[in-house]
């Protein structure tokens, strides 16, 4: 390096453009004149960085060199298979995975959503559209004054960040672990309330029906309601006798009433 510093020769970078074949140009400055035989000189001085050189390999290693790469292949044959056979066997997601949304219900079947639009305000992608409707005595969908009349989530905007879930004051909106959402048109990817609303669990009574007598919406949020009452079932039976949820809900209500008495 000290010799190079004297400045007799042009910079190594400049020279390498003229003589690309010689790998050790900077190490042998005094032989780097254009007239000299550069390749020979370089080889004699140092083997340096010659990837094709087999000099330092033993005979055996040299013999197996062409197939050495198969060592990885062969050893992989004896390792367990890591492939997930996805469409045939579904590996479960993390328990708190952010999947498709769900609008939950109270145990008696009333919807938890009160149409406050906080989810829509929280959404960074403007994917949620909510329109609230007034609950009336004849059509009570959720405890309290209002319910979500129109509820749409555009899954082509939603980034599954979960801010809507954090914003929801009644825990009406939560996320499921369902992630198979591919669709063929834009219209189909806007999920309406009928898709988002949680299905009625056995024993729930389909809305609309009045709240449990004597309880306020605050009692609903505190979890004081465990299922439909016989009065609610009677109310629905009078107005919608063909309702499918009636039989299971009626059974649950009578069971609860008996349990309360005993």
């Amino acid at each position: 390096m000290a010799e190079q510093g004297k400045g007799k020769k042009p910079a190594p970078g400049k020279r390498s453009g003229n003589q690309p074949k010689r790998p050790t140009a900077s190490r042998a400055p005094e032989r780097a004149r254009p007239g000299a035989t550069p390749a020979k000189a370089g080889r004699a001085k140092t083997p340096a960085f010659d990837v094709d050189s087999d000099l330092d390999k033993s005979g055996l290693a040299e013999f197996f060199a062409p197939v050495a790469g198969f060592g990885v292949t062969m050893s992989t044959l004896f390792r367990p298979v890591v492939t997930e056979q996805y469409p045939f066997e579904k590996a479960p997601t993390a328990p708190r995975y952010h999947g498709r949304h769900q609008l939950n219900r109270h145990p008696d079947g009333l919807e938890k959503c009160i149409g406050c639009e906080l989810c829509a305000w929280a959404c960074p992608a403007d994917a949620i559209y909510v329109e609230a409707g007034n609950n009336t005595p004849e059509a009570q969908y959720s405890p309290g004054e209002r319910y979500g009349k129109v509820y749409q989530i555009n899954y082509l905007r939603c980034i599954f960040c979960g801010l809507c879930i954090e914003a929801c004051p009644t825990r009406a909106l939560t996320m499921t672990n369902d992630y198979e959402l591919a669709g063929t048109t834009r219209e189909k990817m806007i999920f309406e309330k009928d898709t988002l609303l949680a299905p009625l669990r056995s024993g729930m009574l389909a809305a609309p029906h009045p709240m449990v007598a004597g309880l306020s919406d605050g009692d609903y949020y505190r979890g004081d309601v465990s299922g439909p009452t016989t009065e609610q079932v009677a109310w629905v039976k009078e107005r919608r006798p063909e309702d499918e949820s009636l039989s299971a809900a009626g059974a649950a209500a009578t069971r609860a009433a008996k349990g309360g008495k005993e």
Binding site: K90, L156, Y179, L181, A182, T184, M189
Partner: peptide
């Protein structure tokens, strides 16, 4: 577009699902 796939980003299973669709 033939298939729309939501997600940000979609997990590989979702992509495979879209491909199968």
């Amino acid at each position: 577009v033939d298939v729309y796939l939501p997600g940000c980003p979609p997990r590989p299973e979702m992509l495979i699902n879209a491909i199968l669709e």
